[in-house]
């Protein structure tokens, strides 16, 4: 799994879509709903079940991080599954929106 900044992924088990903002410092598996995510271009339709331990959901526009590896992921489409990296749940990044300045 080549998790580069700007790479786009989709959940294998729900509607969530993701963009990698910051890559992980170590290789590993990005998961949604407890299952490895697929490249966005992958033709496979979502199937199977969201694992009940990973069903917190992905919100559009929110960013999720893993303190241990530094990976940061943006929710580009919402979905029922929640994100994890090598089984470790990602945390919602609590960023207060800044006022528009441009």
């Amino acid at each position: 799994m080549d998790i580069k900044p700007g790479s786009r992924w989709k959940s294998a088990v729900c509607d969530a879509q993701l963009v990698v903002v910051r890559p992980p410092k170590q290789a590993g598996e990005l998961q949604c709903g407890g299952v490895a995510v697929l490249e966005l271009a992958d033709a496979t339709a979502p199937g199977g079940d969201v694992h009940p331990d990973h069903a917190g959901g992905v919100m559009i526009g929110k960013r999720y991080t893993d303190a241990e590896t530094g990976i940061e992921v943006l929710g580009a489409k919402a979905g029922r599954g929640s994100l994890s990296f090598d089984g470790r749940p990602l945390q919602l990044k609590d960023a207060k929106p800044l006022p528009a300045s441009d």
């Binding site: 700007g6 903002v21 559009i60 526009g61 929110k62 960013r63 943006l74 929710g75 580009a76 960023a95 929106p97 800044l98 528009a100 300045s101």
Partner: peptide, 13 residues
Amino acid sequence: LTSYVMSTVEFMG
């Protein structure tokens, strides 16, 4: 530029 945008603006906010 992408870092500036993503760190200061919420996507579809």
